[in-house]
């Protein structure tokens, strides 16, 4: 009898839980488990990891017996542009400071909307970056780098809004 996945959403959730649970339980073993009275660092996470594996198995097996909707298509475009530009922001923040990072984030993320208009996006990017610099660094005095890595520029007031 061929096995058929009748509830894909639940089945793959189950697989995910098994994988993550096994990962955590596996790593826990390398820490000291200890006894119930004197628990080591591995005790509680090992129990939880094992529980997660068990739950995952139950979920995956139930998904073979009951019907459910298919997993919707993944839209890789928005995923790539939105998450990619967030990563870019994190990296640029360290290298070039907030103004450049902000422009990069807004431009990059806008690519994901599928209705990219160059002029509009540029105005939005510059406007938002300057606004955020003024509010968060100028107004709230949060210690966000404006343009680190460029010692030369740091002497100018722009970098110390």
């Amino acid at each position: 009898m061929a096995i058929r996945i009748r509830n894909p959403r639940d089945f793959w959730s189950g697989v995910m839980f098994v994988a993550v649970g096994a990962l955590f339980a596996g790593i826990s073993i390398s820490y000291r488990l200890g006894t119930a009275a004197r628990m080591g660092p591995g005790y509680f996470p090992f129990v939880l990891g094992a529980m997660l594996v068990l739950l995952g198995v139950v979920i995956a097996f139930t998904a073979l017996k009951t019907d459910g909707p298919a997993v919707d298509k993944f839209h890789w475009g928005p995923i790539f542009w939105v998450l990619g530009s967030i990563v870019l922001f994190g990296v640029l923040l360290k290298l070039t400071g907030m103004l450049v990072a902000g422009v990069g984030l807004v431009v990059g993320a806008s690519m994901g909307s599928g209705e990219f208009k160059r002029r509009e996006v540029l105005i939005l990017a510059v406007g938002l970056s300057v606004f955020c610099a003024a509010v968060f660094v100028g107004g709230l005095k949060l210690p966000i780098p404006m343009c680190p890595g460029f010692d030369y520029f740091e002497r100018f007031s722009l970098c110390r809004v």
Binding site: V82, I86, V87, G90, L93, G102, V106, A109, L142, P143
Partner: peptide, 26 residues
């Protein structure tokens, strides 16, 4: 399309500023 980039930039600055850690953004 104009709203979500704005939300994103506020979110990113927010995440960074909680611990001043760029790793948190990633």
């Amino acid at each position: 399309r104009l709203l979500y980039p704005a939300i994103l930039i506020f979110c990113c600055i927010g995440v960074y500023s909680i611990n001043n850690a760029w790793m948190d953004v990633l």
